[in-house]
Write a protein that binds this DNA or RNA. Sequence first.
DNA 1: GACCGATCTGGGAGCGCTCCCAGAAAGTGA
DNA 2: TCACTTTCTGGGAGCGCTCCCAGATCGGTC
Lengths: 342, 342
Amino acid sequence: MASSVSGDRPTLEDVAAYAGVSRSTASRALNEGSYVSRRAREAVLAAARDLGYSPNQAARSLVTRRTGAIALILSEPETKVLTDPYFLTLMREAFRILATGGSQMLVMFVGTRDDIQRTTKFLEGGHVDGALVVAPHAGDPLPTALRLMRVPVVFGGRPGNAGKGMYTVDYDNVAGGRLAATHLLERGRRGIVTVCGSQDHPAAQDRLLGWQKALAEHGISPEGRAESGDFTQAGGEAAMTRLLARHPDLDAVFAASDPMAAGVLQALRFHGRRVPEDVAVVGFDDHPSMTPTLTPPLTSVHQEPGEQVRHMIMILQDLLAGHTPPLRRQLLPVSLTIRAST
Amino acid sequence: MASSVSGDRPTLEDVAAYAGVSRSTASRALNEGSYVSRRAREAVLAAARDLGYSPNQAARSLVTRRTGAIALILSEPETKVLTDPYFLTLMREAFRILATGGSQMLVMFVGTRDDIQRTTKFLEGGHVDGALVVAPHAGDPLPTALRLMRVPVVFGGRPGNAGKGMYTVDYDNVAGGRLAATHLLERGRRGIVTVCGSQDHPAAQDRLLGWQKALAEHGISPEGRAESGDFTQAGGEAAMTRLLARHPDLDAVFAASDPMAAGVLQALRFHGRRVPEDVAVVGFDDHPSMTPTLTPPLTSVHQEPGEQVRHMIMILQDLLAGHTPPLRRQLLPVSLTIRAST
DNA sequence: GACCGATCTGGGAGCGCTCCCAGAAAGTGA
DNA sequence: TCACTTTCTGGGAGCGCTCCCAGATCGGTC
């Protein structure tokens, strides 16, 4: 039987009948196809509006072999990363961009080995057109597992076993570390130390590297001037306390993340050092909900999570369109936002 | 033509041919349907494994009228809520539960009026089987907009314009406020004040109400003992400073969220009050990444975001199964985790 | 051995859509 | 006017799956 029964959701057939044209013409009109007369197009559009028509995504993707959905895969083996506002910003921005382009965002978290298996199976299953993957830890097996997938994948950040044959969009963390160090040197500081992030994090490695290079270029040996604060406020505070004991004459700190910088400020306050008079402090991330509210407001290396995700999506869409973008590893610039702490 | 061409993804037809049975039998075997001989089932399962078969979701949902996807809709008009670890925990847990049950999670953020329109359209479009909605702000127009949707919807928390005809799963915030106040009273404190959350938040209203009731029942007028700290650490610090000026003799504080409690501790430290000797402090949320790391570790009203989402999903699945769960507003109990701050 | 119910199987229809193709209608130039 | 291209239209096929139904097979009972 025809599906002109009311009550149920209207189909393309219903719209066509209402507009007095055929199903094919209705389809063309709705999909901006060429070779449709103005009269027909307007009639169909009006019919669709009147009937409250909305196309059946399943039927459409059955024939187009496109789902219109993109997976956002977040791999965070440790639950503690939960507190990071970075992930939420990332998701929000990704959602915004994808939604504007008419795509849906399917979020998946990967924690255990089981998750990896399920995720690869899922991607192979053709449920999504492509995937955006953020896997910030060095040892993470996920990137390798996804390398040979038939679905296009774009990575955010530098996956541990980097580069070969995968598309990545990363911040220039080396330049960021260098920027922070140079800024402190320009302020005339020489007793510069760093609270670095866990070194199983490629991003943390890069930030440290940039900082080391800048110091070395100015004739200062970076040896023994770094302590890890494993990206938390408490860790930053502890690391700073250790550094103060080892280098009582220090006059500047580069903390490789904002939460660690907050811990650094706390430790400095506790030990009676004034910021920035006695010790200058630079953070990293410059997250808007964090840096301006600290006392004093924090100078920080600025990065734009929205920008990263935007580039990732651009590459993915290029890949989906059948192109082969030339750049395999894209580095996004970072800048320095100077506030009262330096 | 038959689709036995290799290279392409295998279809059910291919699996059936490989196993030497018909498409129907293959379908029954894979879907745990009854009336399949053991022989046939094993042959089909082996064939599916050998060929790396994974069913085409689009084709399946075209006929079952089920997408296997659930939308998680987060409505947060203000961008500042981003820092809240609650949302991330919620998503993670929701994902975990849904993935285990074979459902996909589609995340949508709603901020602007445009988003609302797009969201309702999307839900009407039949892209998902149901939706979980978290809209913690009182004035939020989203819940009303979703009320009359044909897709089943379950709300988390108490939407501003509560109750009628919607399924909600909320914490017993009134009991939580009462619990905090009672605990402080039992500790012998009488100069009790509160740093409450923004009152455009039903949860904040409820917490304050419970606290007020408990005080009143013990003959203490709650009048003039509350200051809003709008759910941030900085706000909590400022509110506490105002309270100290107004009530120099206070000896206990109930902060309606952990971040605000952190601000309270900071203000107390700054003003030379010892915790818990001079002033006892109780927080709310008891987020594992927060309360134990504060100095001193914070006594806090404990709630389990995972539990909330679990109940929401249970109700939704009931709704999807065609049942009509009797309870329209479910209240989850909260408890008190006592640590060194009281 | 005949009968009957339970168990199992394969073919056909159809979900709502897009795409291909044949043919109608309209436009163009001699 | 006629041939010929261009624009537009509708019917048919088919995407991969589930579900229904008719028929085959199997066991047990009289």
